[in-house]
Design a protein around this nucleic acid. Sequence first.
DNA 1: TGTGACATGTAATATGTTACATGATTGA
DNA 2: TCAATCATGTAACATATTACATGTCACA
Lengths: 172, 172
Amino acid sequence: MPLTELEGAALGLIWSRGATTAYELRKLIAESPTPQWSASAGTVYPLVEKLRKGRLISVSITEDKRGTRHLHIMPAGKRAFKTWMLDCSPAVTGVPPDPVRTRVRFLEMLSSSEGTRFLAESERNLRSQLARMRPRKGESWSESLASLGARLSQRKRVEWIIKVRKLGRGPR
Amino acid sequence: MPLTELEGAALGLIWSRGATTAYELRKLIAESPTPQWSASAGTVYPLVEKLRKGRLISVSITEDKRGTRHLHIMPAGKRAFKTWMLDCSPAVTGVPPDPVRTRVRFLEMLSSSEGTRFLAESERNLRSQLARMRPRKGESWSESLASLGARLSQRKRVEWIIKVRKLGRGPR
DNA sequence: TGTGACATGTAATATGTTACATGATTGA
DNA sequence: TCAATCATGTAACATATTACATGTCACA
């Protein structure tokens, strides 16, 4: 069966970094520009176990008392990862959901003053999120392309909400 | 407790359309520009039941044999909806996840020819999704603002993937 | 009379979150 | 020695999907 987004990303991280721990995986995922992905312990550890059971990764345990578990990608894991990468289904290429967009869809349900306040707050928060999204040093080539994409996307959301504010002044 | 995205959207739809059936709700959600939202029967019917139990909506049953259940928003539902609308938490205003972006993050894991193929396929599919997103007639004012946002966002994804293709030719 | 749209629901499963629980290692 | 970080996990719960199951109504 196909990999989920998180499984694909986890496999990619394990592959690109060589020996990784589940703990590191969590932090890497949390650092990603998308704040929706929290990758809590309750997600990552069962996920790692599932990948291991499916023989997509192997686990080596250190000899010391702590017994840190390092994850390694296996041949089947590489194949599964590539299949996931090359998947261009509508779920991948279709417009991603946007909670602000969903709310704007119902803008007309608010009173004029509520709507104005909502749009002002939204613009402010979209902007402050954007400001936080600086490219990090040490980013690899493809990481920087991805984080560029995240910034462009967020900038477009800001431009759009400004347009909404302008258009909103008309029909109300 | 706060409403989920689907609950908020469902309440908004029930409010804006007056008497609605769960079945209509499903279709409306499926028609939305975001293909991720399927709102299957297994989602919508339990969700409607939950809203009813929480006294956010009421249900009226027709007298005929079919007994169609029409949904109506209640005062507590209106309050919950407005609270949901005005929520500007990072989960709402942060960059939404984008599966193509996630994959581009791992572009360097592909061979040169695989990468080229991936990017070409992605651009083609992003474009064909965009082409499908025409504004529908009969859209309300705020619906058209939302669908404009969806198109702008998708267009930006296309522009970005083109940039990735150009930049990608350099370091490889 | 039969087909397609209308209409409602359940069961099994998948996926992910929050909160809890534990212990090792490092450096001030 | 104490605090922060490293490190692994479980339990209860929430949310959503797929597939299945059932029945009505309009109309050709």
